[in-house]
Design a protein around this nucleic acid. Structure first.
Lengths: 270, 270
DNA sequence: GCCGCTGTTCACAAGTTTTTCACGGCGCTT
DNA sequence: AAGCGCCGTGAAAAACTTGTGAACAGCGGC
């Protein structure tokens, strides 16, 4: 369920979008809408909202109750409280100074109400914004404790399974078996420290082994396993391996023989 | 200067936007446009482009040469090579399936060509996209990452990467690879001691090497590497090298065989 | 004991990085 | 003007890293 914070002063627009916003499954279930028809009411709500009830996304009409600054004032209040909240403006006045100012103030998007197929466009953009947020913050609120996510990768801390684009990472040596424990631990360690590099010694420590005996060759071997496993889950066409060479994914740092998880977020076409 | 990678098959759109794209000061100076009228040409260029010439942003027509998948195929190629490159679609077909698919594939934006004031809107959105990239780069783990900055140079202490005007410093010997470790360490040392000169012995000490065996010739060689690396990131036109001769950047201290980082911010305001 | 699995080690080729060498140029001194 | 020392440079040698396949050891189940 996504919490949507929505400011819109004109009833007919509310009527037009309400249903589609409530029912679109942005993340699998119906959404919780908070609608405000006045900037002041919205401001007050922002001030009073607990962190645990924070919205996932905000939609603002740029012009509220006839005042151009209405949307911007709410926007600023939102930004002060939740600097990384994705905010989309929704306005009849695209292509004007209003849009320029909104974008300059780091609004995520500015959607024209007058366009073909607006309600669908709106949903697509909300979905994109939410996904971008997920990618940016490594973990999404609800699952925070049990899931570690970074781009297309998802590690379930409880049962120690890892997924790439929803596909479970398997053992390259035997596609029917899950990824072996040590590589999984290494992957977790890499993701947790990202974007910082992880040296052989740190891995040894993390695995509870003696850093003096834990050879770098072993680490390299596990990294190889991981890279191939992800590549297999990715389609097995070597795209991921190539990305590793370009410094994304499990990148080589050439510094103390360290590797580094660099999130690469994009989805392969279907 | 921003490097813009632009795919557009219709000349009249090129004519319409070319000037404004070239001249808008997204980051203080004129831009470098690479325009492609065919998907294939664009693909080829992507494959052949060195890391140091990587574009800052891409603009794609969604429908190229009559094929819906044209834009998307270029998009995928771009993403494979540079997963974090901001890509904006620019299309006559907003509100259609094309827009949906593009947004689902993590395109940053999808701009309708048919709207009031398109050229300005386009610029605003490009500016917003570039700023977002900068923010992401500087703020990825903002609190935790220690960053050393001096003028246009930024050294990320944690993951050991260095940027000049937002572009990553690459290895001059092989533009696809990052700057080698030793030059990076030397650069850091120079910047940290700036504006005091750093002698060969100090470098040897900093690198944990025996000052007696560490030859000055080696130091000179690394300095050369650094200067070329920065120059490449600067556009590769020798301007930075010139500045070094004039005593800015990595200056030579005639006195005692030392080099010295002299901050030079000749890039105008932002 | 035998089997299958995992984690570790070794050896080696390919590729990178660092160091060395040789030379031309510049400025200063003799 | 010749000599000297030092800087910048290109190329080549030397040293090191990384990725990889194959072999080996340990372990638990049967």
């Amino acid at each position: 369920m996504a919490r949507i914070f929505w400011v819109e002063d004109q009833s007919h627009w509310i009527d037009k979008f309400k249903q589609v916003l409530e029912e679109s499954a942005f993340d699998g279930s119906a959404n919780e809408l908070s609608i405000f028809k006045f900037a002041e009411a919205a401001q007050q709500k922002i001030a009073l909202t607990d962190e645990c009830k924070r919205p996932d996304i905000a939609l603002l009409d740029a012009r509220i109750n006839g005042r151009d600054e209405g949307g911007l004032s709410v926007f600023n209040a939102l930004m002060r409280k939740w600097p990384d909240l994705p905010v989309l403006f929704l306005s009849e006045h695209s292509g004007t100074e209003l849009e320029k100012v909104a974008l300059e103030h780091h609004a995520l998007d500015f959607i024209s109400k007058h366009q073909r197929n607006v309600d669908e466009v709106l949903c697509w953009r909300i979905k994109a914004a939410l996904r971008q947020r997920d990618v940016r913050q490594t973990a999404s609120g609800a699952e925070k404790d049990r899931v570690l996510a970074s781009g297309d990768l998802r590690i379930d801390i409880d049962n120690w399974e890892a997924y790439w684009k929803g596909r479970k990472l398997m053992n390259p040596a035997n596609a029917k078996r899950p990824l072996a424990p040590t590589p999984r631990k290494i992957l977790r360690c890499l993701v947790e420290r990202s974007p910082r590099p992880v040296t052989t010694n740190q891995i040894a420590e993390h695995l509870g082994l003696d850093p003096d005996t834990y050879a770098h060759a072993t680490y390299r071997q596990h990294v190889k396993t991981l890279r191939t496993a992800i590549d297999r889950a990715d389609g097995g066409n070597g795209v991921f391996l190539q990305q590793c060479q370009n410094g994304f994914g499990i990148a080589t740092c050439r510094e103390d023989g360290a590797y580094c998880w660099k999130r690469c977020s994009y989805s392969e076409s279907k």
